[in-house]
Amino acid sequence: MIDMDKANEVINRFKDLEGGLLECLHGVQQAFGYVPKETVNVMADAFNLSRAEVHGVISYYHDFKTNPEGRKVVRICQAEACQSMGSRGLTERVKDVLNIDLGDTSADGEYSLEAVYCFGNCALSPNVEIDGKLHARVSSDNFEALLKQGDGA
């Protein structure tokens, strides 16, 4: 069970904002790290929408997560520029290191790995984002170091 008081507090903050559902979803995701399914009915009620409509919005945006993410989120660019600079090989390496596929979260809840299509930093391809911090010109060799750096090790 999630903390519904917390959910209500977030939802109440946005419910009178016109077209506030997107803002609200961001708020909920920020509070819980994902959009718990228990909050869908509450948001539908607050914005006077159907739960199907809320679901339609959540499922449209890949950035809204419906399950808890790993403690660390690794996002790796799969777009053309990064691919031409070796992101395919890098992706394979990252999968090996984290022992998960794109779109998955590791069993211990430590890592999530996501595909991204362009960070807008093509001049310095390939790009990887670790916990919100963008790293440019990442190679198979320095990825693990970057990952550890993030751990504060």
Binding site: S50, A52, E53, V54, H55, S59, Y60
Partner: peptide, 20 residues
Amino acid sequence: TFALTVDGRGFDSKISAGTD
């Protein structure tokens, strides 16, 4: 009634009743 929606986007999109 607003019971249906389009779930997802692009090639993955599908018609969904309620929350899938």
